[in-house]
Nucleic acid binder design. Structure first.
Lengths: 354, 354
DNA sequence: CTGAAAGCGCTTACAG
DNA sequence: CTGAAAGCGCTTACAG
């Protein structure tokens, strides 16, 4: 059906070997021959059979990207940028959604890597460690960890390799310290924190960074209410409901993910609370329409372009056998309209609706 | 590096042929042998080399998806659902962003199809017709057109095949008639329309369907101002600015795409206009956070889940050689808070800011 | 400067 | 019920 090398060779009156060499620009082929072969190949729309080439060269020209959910605006933007950069480097992108499910993630890892579908995988790990990640590492796969680290135990070969795997993620410490300073500075003394699942290193980290910054600003442990979510919008709603049922509900809420921030906003509104007059809300992740929300969302923006570029760069370094290139570009706090001073003290119990 | 069939054969004490047959469940292999081979393959994490299999069977187990921009929430959601459904059918997804650029789209088509990277492509065409689409069709590629049709001329083989290619897209006629009825019913007499590029059949269609519905409700041609955009947020802003500079600016604006609706909202606000008191705004495409915008956006929602399912279904039918399965599930108007009655007549020129 | 030949890892007629 | 052999489309040492 498709045009094959044999056809190009016949049309050019040379052997397949010459076509192959000519198209790869080998100096062994004379310029006139090279030009003629290239022109014919172009004219007939010849493209080498990707599978045949992969079989022969043990490299596919494809990269895998396993994220938890492309419908999440953060990952959608990230996937788009990674595709763009990879395409510029002549790599195609196989996209997989793990849906935060370790088993699905491991299935993808195995099909992509053990099946030699791709040369490497950029992975947003669904859990701190899974059998599939271990298996990929011990098979010597090219793995770049994106957005989240992985928890490595032991000193076997897989563990050692994994410890060396490049991790590319936003550095949230500075921005979360800014969040703490902003909220405490405005007078908030009771803060609700909705981190990603704490079974996940990224959940623990966002929680700990903010909680510690809040404490540095004088808040006591009892003033900080933690209700983890699961990266989904719905979990943000549920977490806010739980926060509002507390004896002394928070006057400010931090939601550690874009979708959870949306969910938190919905639940806050449903409870009849005004943002920021009754409660302040600070999110994590940004999107081009967050400034159009009601109110415009104050949030921690991740450096998506840098993350995408660094992830592809780290993968290319791996593929070339160069030393691994981790990266941690800083997140930054974007102040918009969803934060403000807390309501007066005697309004304290107002939030206990639902 | 990776485990190959040879290794499984050795461990099981049988030939490679037997392993192949056993794993494919051939009745020629005895049950004990099959079970033993399967168990060993599972234990060592064997996965067939995708390229070798593709070379031999002429089928890759992969599908291409070429969209114009995954960062657009509509396509992000669509891509996510398509990946999910394709994965359930054991197909992996190669994602490509054409960025509405015909040349990039054609490059992807050629690399995916002529390069035998995928068994078929689900394509959101960047233009009504391009050389790459024609080439793919005449090479007999499996092509499903998503969200947008293609303009076919001529009666050659490629044209005939293309005319038979399944088209899967939302049917907007009913919902756009509802938009016209809603706006005219509220008293609007001057409507601004920001369709997708009219070089694109989908742009012409959205424009024509709405304009005709508006006319059926008694609006004259001069009352309808058309300022096409290009699917990007920025173009929605520019289009609104042009609409507001008109002698008699519209009292209601329709933006024919999610990102353009966001842009329109931004420009309207920047011009100091209140929505919907000064201008009504109706969008196209929906997202889980559109109800949190200020004001909540009244919009035409596309049936994304149905579109994704229908696209994969159409592709599977093609791959099985079954008759092509087009689909056109209906869009529906979601009324929220961005529409209302027009301001009083003597306010008519208020909008001429900028 | 160019060609003939081997081999990557599978699947599938063909033997037995 | 199982194995030996051919061949998919490439690339790359090896000859000449």
């Amino acid at each position: 059906m498709a045009v094959r090398m044999r056809d190009v060779a016949r049309l050019a009156g040379v052997s397949e070997a010459t076509v192959s060499l000519a198209l790869s620009g080998s100096p062994r082929i004379s310029e006139p021959t090279r030009a003629r072969v290239a022109e014919i190949a172009r004219r007939v729309g010849y493209r080498p059979h990707a599978g045949a080439r992969a079989l022969r060269t043990d490299s596919t020209g494809a990269l895998g990207l396993v994220v938890s959910d492309v419908a999440n605006p953060f990952f959608a933007e990230l996937a788009g940028q990674i595709e763009r950069i990879a395409a510029a480097e002549e790599y195609s992108l196989v996209l997989c959604n793990s849906d935060e499910d370790a088993a699905r993630q491991d299935g993808y890892l195995s099909s992509l890597l053990a099946g030699s579908r791709v040369d490497g995988v950029i992975l947003v790990p669904a859990e701190a460690m899974t059998p599939g990640i271990k298996a990929a590492a011990s098979a010597g796969a090219n793995l770049v960890l994106l957005d989240r680290p992985v928890t490595v135990r032991g000193r076997d070969a897989a563990a050692t390799r994994l410890r060396d795997a490049p991790v590319v993620r936003g550095s949230a410490a500075g921005a979360l310290a800014d969040v703490a300073e902003l909220l405490v500075g405005l007078g908030h003394r009771r803060v609700g924190v909705i981190p990603p699942p704490v079974s996940n290193p990224v959940g623990r980290e966002r929680r700990d960074l903010l909680v510690e910054a809040l404490r540095r600003h004088g808040l006591a442990g009892g003033d900080i209410a933690v209700e983890p979510g699961d990266f989904r919008q719905h979990s943000g709603e549920r977490a806010v409901e739980r926060l509002l049922r507390r004896r002394r509900p928070p006057t400010a809420v931090f939601a550690g993910d874009g979708l959870m921030a949306i969910g938190a906003m919905k639940a806050l509104r449903r409870a009849g609370l005004r943002i920021p007059e009754d409660v302040s809300l600070v999110g994590f992740d940004d999107a081009p329409w967050f400034d159009l929300l009601d109110p415009p969302l104050t949030t921690v923006a991740q450096p998506i372009t840098e993350l995408a570029a660094a992830a592809v760069r780290a993968m290319l370094a791996l593929l070339r056998g160069e030393p691994s290139l981790a990266a941690a570009p800083p997140c930054r706090l974007v102040q918009r309209g969803s934060h403000g001073a807390p309501p007066h003290r005697n309004d304290a119990k107002k939030g206990t609706t639902s």
